[in-house]
Amino acid sequence: MSRIAETFHKLRSSGQKALVGFITAGDPDFATSLEITRQMCRSGVDLLELGIPFSDPAADGPVIQRSSARAIAAGMNLARAMEMVRMIREFSPVPIVIFSYYNPILAYGAEGFYRDATAAGADGALVVDLPPEESDELTDLWGKDLDFIRLVAPTTPPDRMAAIASKASGFIYLVSMTGITGSGGLKSEETAVVANDLKKNCHGLPVCVGFGISTPEDAAGMSKLADGVVVGSAFERLIESGLGDKDLAAKVGRFAAGLKAAM
């Protein structure tokens, strides 16, 4: 059983929901970012998504665009993100998913990515702009030691959900709304309908809902619909507002704890 599967198994059997925390790796700099992950892992984050910054994040809102620009300017790249994964592994067993656009992985090399990510201790990969129609060119070169997290959107019809789930592992990331990351306007009734369709078509894989979840109340509400929630832009907003604050990592940790406590 993969570390991700094991995590969801444990949470399910104790009646808990997963808090998946996303941050852009290297924002605002390597050391601060690493300290932020440490505080997040300590404060109840069940699964960590490390975003690889990309120059042209076409599926992301302004908050993650800016965080990506900061991280790139501070020298973050895929190789350094692998190093960060390895360093997180020294202090935490929390499953780590590398979250990226496809181009940085393509530039790194598909086989090298798999080899280095697994060696560093990453547990999964999520490639935002790589739908099942295109992903064989990457996953055909991979072994079984990296879960491949896939996205399902509110626009995805049920038969396509099933097809996506059959090529996914770890968990399914359900996008809560038709929009980019950090959008407002969460509508839990609509998400509930999609989540129900997905549960019937996901072959038992855990489902986590993300996009637009920014408060403990959101997390509490959305976690009822699935096995967990993903929070990203809210962490990045906090990081952006605390640039230069030496207490930043601790603040992010406290925010994570607040989210987890509400779920």
């Binding site: 739908p131 295109e134 959107a153 509110p154 626009t155 996008v175």
Partner: peptide
């Protein structure tokens, strides 16, 4: 049928856009 010109082309987009 998936929009490939040899190695090139395709649909590298977020899932939200795929059905469209």
């Amino acid at each position: 049928k998936n929009g490939h010109f040899g190695l090139y082309g395709g649909r590298y987009v977020a899932e939200t856009l795929m059905p469209a």
